[in-house]
Each structure stands twice: as C-alpha cells, then as structure tokens.
C-alpha cells in the first residue's frame, strides 16, 4: 500500500510538468501579442517604442524553451506575475477567491453523494416498481438539463415564486443551496444510476446467495455485503464528479453572483488578463489532479485486493 502511494506521488511530478508545458504552449500559441494586450490593459498607447519596451520587460525576445523554463521556475516559486488589470500578484488574488469556490464545490459534492446514495439504493431494491421508475425518470431529466438553465429555473421557483431562498450572493446555508443544487444535479443523477447498477449486480451475486445460505438475514446481506461492494467502486467516480463540479462552479458563480474563483477567471478572460488565466488553469488542474490522486488512494485502501497486492499466500 505504501509502495502504491509513493509510486503515485512520484508520478505526480511528470504529470504536473506535462500539464505546465501544455498550458505554456497554449498560452504562447494563442496569445497573439502579449505585449499588445499588456499595453492595452495598462492604458499605454501601443507605439513601437512602448511595444519594444514591453516585449523586453515581459521577456518575449528570448527563445521559447528559455521562456518556458523561466516561466516554470517562477511558477515553482509561486510567482505567477501580476494581473494586467489590477496589478496585484495573481496568486494572491486567486487564493483570495478560491476558498469561496471550494466551500461551494465541497457542499455540492456532499449533496451529490448524500442524495445519490439513498436514491440509488431504493431504486435498486424496488427495481421496476414505482420508486425505481420515478428515480430513473427524474435521473433522465436531470442529466439532460444544462446547469445554467437549471440555475435560473431554481431561482424562478424558489426565489421568485416561493420566496424561500435568496437568489444572489454569498452567505450561509440558505445562500449555498441553490448554487450547489445547480452544480450537483447532473452528477447526482449519474451517481444514483451507478449505485443502482452496482447494487443490482451485487444483489444477484454468488456471495449474496452464499450469505443467504449461511443464514444471514436479507437486511444483513444487503446492508453489509451488497452495499459495501456496491459503494467501493463509486469512490472512483468521485474524481469524475469533481471535474464536472469545477466547471459547474464557474456557471453557478456567474448565475448567483457567488464571489468565487470561477467568476474571477471569467472576467479575466474578458479582459485578456493572461497571468490570471494561466494561474487559474494551473491551480484548478493541480487541485483536480490531487483530488483524483486522493480518490485513487482511498479506493486502493478500501479494496483489499489492491491494498494487499503482493501478499497472496
């Protein structure tokens, strides 16, 4: 197990390096003239002279690999430059908004997992009867609604018509519910379906039959054996959900004016604020990679076949 963890941690380095290379290449390929946008955003008229000065300042005259290594070195020292717009250090600004996004994403993930579990289990136990058909029908709608539409639907129903929940801004639980629901519905439905499929498979497995033969009550068979074997594989799906949640966060923050890093990134894109954009993608990807690593390690720990690899008698 320890070996597994160390191996995965070691792989992290080349992965992150590859990520940084891709980001850098896209950045350079697409930037047009970074000097131009820098000057534009700073309000300096782009005379030839100013452009030349900007180019030297931004180090754009050096060969590409040198620029990359220099950029990478800076990134390693957590120096992501300054925002073209606010002139503040980019990392500082992103880290200012990031916790808000993480809180929202965390709550969404919790909603996804907490709601999909009972739905998936009930759906499986009541296969083809009314509860199952309801859950399956709702799931089907749930994966077909775009989150930006869903957000406004929820606002219309819960904020405008029913006046139960606020429609804007950051705050406590009541402010979090609608944006989190917007983000989590699709993942919730996918996860419920996954749990249902796993449970159906395991309900008719041979070890379930043998457990019944040994005299275990149906409650024990389902609650202990079927559930354990059904939920462990779902852990790996969490990685996929987190990826969707990050994307959903950007949309939800826009709809609900939640001051998170997604909203910040979108305005940076409008402003062609490249330092912010690059830091944004690097940080979010880093988080995503670390989350996936955590999920994989958790899964390896939960499943004894992986945890104890190499210890077969």
């Amino acid at each position: 197990m320890l070996y597994y963890i160390l191996k995965r941690l070691a792989l992290l380095v080349p992965i992150l390096l590859a990520v940084s290379l891709v980001v850098f290449l896209i950045l350079r390929l697409g930037q047009g003239d970074p000097a131009m946008s820098y000057l534009r955003l700073s309000g300096i008229p782009p005379t030839d002279e100013a452009l030349a000065v900007a180019r030297t300042e931004l180090g754009l005259n050096r060969p590409l690999p040198v620029q990359y290594l220099d950029w990478l070195g800076k990134a390693a020292r957590l120096d992501f430059g300054r925002s073209y717009v606010t002139k503040n250090p980019v990392l500082e600004e992103i880290l200012y908004y990031l916790p808000n996004t993480l809180v929202l994403a965390g709550f969404s993930l919790f909603l996804t997992l907490a709601a999909s579990l009972p739905l998936g289990v009930i759906s499986a136990m009541e296969k083809d009867r009314l509860p199952d058909q309801l859950v399956r029908g709702l799931s089907f709608f749930g994966v077909s609604i775009p989150n930006f539409f869903l957000g406004f639907l929820l606002v219309w129903v819960f904020s405008i018509k029913l006046r139960w929940l606020p429609s804007l801004g950051m705050g406590g639980l009541s402010h979090m519910i609608l944006p989190a629901a917007t983000m989590s519905l699709m993942s919730l439905c996918i996860n419920a379906r996954l749990i249902r499929a796993n449970m159906l498979e395991n309900l008719h497995s041979r070890y379930a039959l043998y457990a019944r033969a040994r005299g275990l009550s149906e409650a024990s068979v389902v609650g202990r054996h079927v559930l354990a074997n059904s939920l462990i594989p779902v852990v790996t799906a969490v990685g996929m959900h987190v990826g969707e949640l990050f994307g959903g966060a950007v949309v939800a923050e826009s709809i609900f004016a939640w001051p998170g890093v997604g909203r910040y990134a979108v305005s940076a894109i409008y402003n062609r604020d490249y330092p912010v954009m690059q830091c944004f993608i690097l940080i979010m990807t880093l988080l995503f990679v670390v989350m996936n690593l955590g999920v994989d390690i958790l899964y390896a720990w939960l499943d004894p076949r992986i945890r104890l690899q190499g210890e077969t008698s």
Partner: peptide, 23 residues
C-alpha cells in the same frame, strides 16, 4: 451449503474471520 467456484462465494472485501463471525 457448499458451492461451486468457492472464490465467487465469499465477499471479496471481508476477511474469513468476518464470514465466521457473521454466520
């Protein structure tokens, strides 16, 4: 009962001890 293909009859994530205890 004892069954064919014994590997598939035991719950892969539970120890033999667990199987005894719960039985």
């Amino acid at each position: 009962m004892i069954m064919q293909n014994p590997m598939s009859c035991f719950d892969p994530v539970f120890t033999i001890r667990s199987h005894f205890k719960e039985t």
